[in-house]
Design a protein around this nucleic acid. Structure first.
Lengths: 349, 349
DNA sequence: TGTTAGCAGTCAATTCTACTGAGTGCCAAC
DNA sequence: GTTGGCACTCAGTAGAATTGACTGCTAACA
């Protein structure tokens, strides 16, 4: 896969072959064992055939260049974020085990129900597949056009504005008035709102009636409520799967707490995923994403594109020493299946 | 508050005054310190004025009767679930600090937005107030009547059925057909569905047309999709606040994982809360609720009643050694404000 | 010049031991 | 029935000794 980071350091940061091999061996072993890696185990690893002493001198160099770090003098080396970055950038693309592939295919072949349910279940299966916490983000309907709007009266002063978008999203907004509204007025407002809004997107400005009668006021209120999108979001949904994995995968109560606390804030998660995609990355390691409290995490994202338009993303959140190969493969495969699932193919539900 | 458990043991399990005082002192101190409690600290506590030796002999009795347990020979005593139960049953009702009361009042005075948002924020504030994980459950719309149904065409074979309930809930269902549907047919089906369903509840059976034309088929499909409620749920929503608290409040990775894993399963949480309410309890301690993996948890629930009908519940989840007095008071106060917020009072949003 | 073996040194982690002190149960005196 | 006192238990801790997994350095080697 060997995705190059768009924001990679000016020099291509390519190490000579032997240093590269050694670094990769260190990272691979550290991911496996979670322990500092010593020179001898690297020297005995498959791709390296120099003595421990040579490995040691190379490690000194790698440490000086910032790829490795030493917890204390008499310990082995541990990769830094930069070390992981090199590793990920030079990763050969992986594939899932056939059992896992089967599981994904089987899931998408049989999944039924509303979009929301599918995304939620997708998130669960992705987490199950990787044993990391997964995140599925669906794009907002900011660019979807309106198919229908309807005002439903709850009582004389409370209306419910129900809007249906071309992407199948249904959104409700309360419209409260300071005057009583008759059913007739509500129906008339509904009719005019439809005429006004169908085919527009939330970004389009529309010409609202300036009259002062109750129907016109109702229409103005409804449009303004509808268009009052949050500055930070336009209806993205987040589905988090396997948040309990956080407790398994990270060590230290404080880390677990921090990560959970981030996951609680859905807006933050959306922003995080979009930031990473905007940086052109597919993996953000440690401090790369700029979220202080996720500095011991790596985030993998795979965009989901339906009919050429971005439709969301799937992500995985794990420790920096996560199994990148498998996780990237899983996220990629799920993203692809998700895209196909929502792309033209008719689902038989 | 001194709520008696509906399922309390046959005998009212009332200890003589001194035993009771001692037990309460043990529980109170254990809640405070998380440490086994010894005879001397109990003897020196405010409400007890006998010597440590006497306390010891009473403790032996309390242990024999199952209220206390000893982690090991030379340690103090720790309350059992039964001990906590006694403590909770004899708890005097507490009140929140005035700062906390102010916070709740202020919150409910200023909160705006859709029901869902209010509930979500309520859950957050309750968690913040108590530093436990909070759960807010809204009742399903199984008993709400239908205000409006509308079929919106996504394309020739995919319709969206949008249903508005009298409680303000909006629900969508996909209706997919194997034949092409014209806009005219969809509109006609929509009209007839309205005539058929408005005023009914999901429990009511309705007479669907038996004709075989496309409009009638569409109507039948729509009604069956709508009425195909899950056997286990009828649209309850769960809002969980402060799940990151789990990491602070429980010790042991495994416990944290188990609890998070329960919280991930929203259906389970709804069932749990309803089970507890059905048992007539307001607090379920340890094994009382029958969920194996929550055996080290206590759950506090307070029902929310709007206009005489159950409208949901708020809950708190903490370790068995939680601060019951404060937590019960907080849950109670929030439940009450929530009821008032949705009961008749006009919100000015 | 780059690679290697060997060696001395470092330091976290482990193990062992001894000790401390909180807490008990029991008993005899009140 | 209550209490003080005493012997006993045992988890937790602190300190010392040991281990062993590393390193960096240096001298020999190809």
């Amino acid at each position: 896969m060997a995705r190059r980071a768009a924001n990679a350091s000016p020099s291509p940061s390519d190490l000579d072959a032997r240093k590269g091999t050694i670094l990769e061996a260190v990272v691979a072993e550290h991911i496996d064992t979670a322990q500092p890696v010593g020179s001898s185990s690297v020297a005995h690893s498959a791709d390296v055939d120099v003595s421990p002493a040579t490995v040691r001198s190379e490690m000194v160099a790698l440490e000086r260049e910032g790829y490795l770090a030493q917890p204390h003098t008499s310990a082995g080396r541990v990769p830094t974020d930069k070390g992981y970055r090199y590793f990920v950038d030079h990763l050969k693309s992986g594939v899932l085990s056939s059992a896992q592939q089967y599981q994904v295919r089987d899931f998408f072949a049989n999944v039924r129900g509303e979009v929301e349910d599918v995304l939620e279940q997708t998130s669960m299966i992705l987490s199950q597949l990787t044993s990391y916490t997964s995140v599925v983000v669906s794009a907002g309907h900011g660019h979807a056009s309106i198919l229908s709007v309807q005002l439903v009266s709850l009582d004389a002063r409370h209306q419910l504005l129900v809007t249906v978008f071309s992407d199948g999203a249904v959104v409700k907004h309360s419209v409260n008035t300071t005057f009583d509204t008759t059913f007739v007025d509500a129906a008339e407002a509904s009719r005019q709102l439809n005429a006004l809004l169908i085919g527009t997107t939330l970004g389009d400005r529309v010409q609202v009636p300036s009259r002062t009668d109750s129907v016109a006021t109702l229409i103005r209120d409804a449009v303004s409520v509808l268009h009052a999108v949050q500055p930070t979001t336009d209806g993205e949904q987040v589905y988090i799967g396997g948040s309990s994995r956080v407790a398994e995968v990270f060590d230290g109560v404080e880390t677990v707490r921090k990560v959970l606390s981030i996951l609680e804030q859905e807006l933050l998660v959306v922003t995080l995923v979009q930031d990473i995609l905007n940086q052109g990355l597919s993996v953000a390691i440690g401090s790369e994403h700029g979220y202080e409290s996720l500095s011991s995490c790596a985030v993998i994202v795979a965009p989901v594109t339906v009919d050429g338009a971005p439709a969301g993303a799937v992500g995985l959140l794990g420790p920096t020493r996560m199994k990148y190969r498998e996780a990237i493969a899983a996220a990629g495969m799920v993203a692809q299946h998700l895209a196909r699932h929502f792309g033209g193919e008719d689902d038989l539900a």
